[in-house]
Each structure stands twice: as structure tokens, then as C-alpha cells.
């Protein structure tokens, strides 16, 4: 099968049944290669987040197929999907989703421990995102941009080849937003990761290797 980092074919997702059924995705085909940034853009409710959840093994599609690094997700048990998510993917969320009771370093260490890695790697990961000096700070003591960079460091724990980001710059000002965009670009281009970003942010569109526009669950165009 495909050697793409992520690939979908004929992907459809319908929420509900009968008269109340809502088609969130309709026959979506696309691929993302390693070292590539793909931006998923489109209006609210267009199906971008549903697609991201399916790619992240968090949602089963109604129809179609998904491959992660050539491995078909169909037929995998919940535990196998959880393991795949843990070992091969990192997640970045719009509202950071940091553990408020843990420091920046400890937030990263949780992910490192889950992946069986040396907790000492947290320092290097925070250094990579420019936050080595803030490792002992709690999320409440960090700015929005700093929180998102901690979240990126956490997503990088265990060196996953795939990063999935949901509106990573939506809650940031322009300076911090640009910094995060540059960082995500570097993580894809310099480190060979596949990065999928759901976004409304045109700066990410400019940075992305591919931009996919989704509307009403269908890919309208991609370039």
C-alpha cells in the first residue's frame, strides 16, 4: 500500500441516522507525505475537525479507508488504535489542553513517560521550542504563545512522525502566531514529519506545502 504518512480514500462520515443524519465528510481522498505541511481550511462546520479526528484514530469513519504510514486502520482494535496514536502521533490543540497542575517540564514528561522515554528529554524539547527557561513555570504563569509551545514540545515527545494540530494559532496574537507557524514549518521540513493543521489562519496557508479546502464535507480544491 501507499508509503504516504497519511492517506484516505473515499472517506465519508455521517453523524446520526434518518432525517437527522448529517453528512460531515463525503468521499474525501488525499495524501500527506513525510516532511510535508498540509493545511485543512474551510468554514466552520465544513468537516475539517471530523477529518482530523479520523486521522488521529479518534473517530471511525462511516465509509472509506485510512492508512497511517501504510497501515490500514480498518479492523484495528481500540487498543491497537490507542497504541498507534501514542507511538506515531502528536497532538496540538487550540486551547493547549495542558495539565494546569503540572509545570511546563512535567507536562512534557507525562507524554515522555507514556511513550517509555527518558524524562530528561523534556529539557531538550522545551529548548527546541524556546522555553528552556520556563520549564518550572505552571501553565497559568505562561502566555498563550508559551502555552502553545509547551503543547508542541509535549506533542514532540517520543519523536512522532505525524503531528496533528487543531487551530494551533487561533488563540494567539500575531507575534506568537507567527512563531508557532514557523516552528511547525521547521518541524515538518527540517525534521521530516508529516504535519496536518486545521486552520483558518492564512499565514499557515502560506507556509503549507499543500492547502486543502473543504466545504460541506467535500474537498473543493487543493493546491
Amino acid at each position: 500500500m501507499s508509503a504516504q504518512a497519511l492517506e484516505t480514500r473515499g472517506l465519508s462520515m455521517v453523524y446520526g441516522t434518518g432525517d437527522t443524519a448529517v453528512r460531515a465528510l463525503d468521499a474525501v481522498d488525499f495524501q500527506v507525505a513525510a516532511g510535508q505541511v498540509m493545511a485543512l481550511m474551510g468554514p466552520s462546520g465544513s468537516g475539517k475537525t471530523t477529518l482530523l479526528m479520523i486521522l488521529g484514530c479518534l473517530l471511525h469513519p462511516t465509509a472509506g479507508s485510512v492508512w497511517v504510514e501504510g497501515q490500514a486502520l480498518a479492523g484495528l482494535s481500540t487498543q491497537a488504535l490507542t497504541r498507534l496514536r501514542l507511538r506515531r502521533m502528536g497532538f496540538i490543540f487550540q486551547s493547549y489542553n495542558l495539565f494546569p497542575a503540572l509545570t511546563a517540564a512535567e507536562n512534557v514528561q507525562v507524554a515522555l513517560e507514556l511513550k517509555g522515554r527518558d524524562l530528561g528529554e523534556a529539557t531538550a524539547l522545551l529548548d527546541l521550542v524556546g522555553l528552556a527557561g520556563r520549564r518550572r513555570n505552571f501553565p497559568a504563569q505562561l502566555s498563550g504563545g508559551e502555552k502553545q509551545r509547551v503543547a508542541i514540545a509535549r506533542a514532540l515527545a517520543g519523536d512522532p512522525p505525524i503531528l496533528l494540530a487543531d487551530e494551533p494559532t487561533a488563540a494567539l496574537d500575531s507575534v506568537n502566531g507567527r512563531a508557532v507557524v514557523r516552528l511547525l514549518g521547521d518541524l515538518a521540513h527540517a525534521q521530516g514529519r508529516a504535519v496536518v493543521i486545521v486552520t483558518h489562519d492564512p499565514r499557515i496557508g502560506e507556509l503549507a506545502d499543500r492547502v486543502v479546502h473543504i466545504e460541506d464535507g467535500r474537498i473543493q480544491d487543493q493546491f
Binding site: 488521529g56 479518534l58 490507542t82 497504541r83 498507534l84 496514536r85 501514542l86 507511538r87 502521533m89 497532538f91 490543540f93 489542553n97 495539565f99 494546569p100 507525562v110 507524554a111 507514556l114
Partner: peptide, 13 residues
């Protein structure tokens, strides 16, 4: 609960 949701999304066993 949101933190447990985050852990599960991250793939915590």
C-alpha cells in the same frame, strides 16, 4: 475530566 480526555486522546493506556 478534560485532562483525562486529553490523556486518552494522547493515547494513554
Amino acid at each position: 475530566l478534560p485532562e483525562f480526555g486529553t490523556l486518552r486522546a494522547m493515547g494513554a493506556p
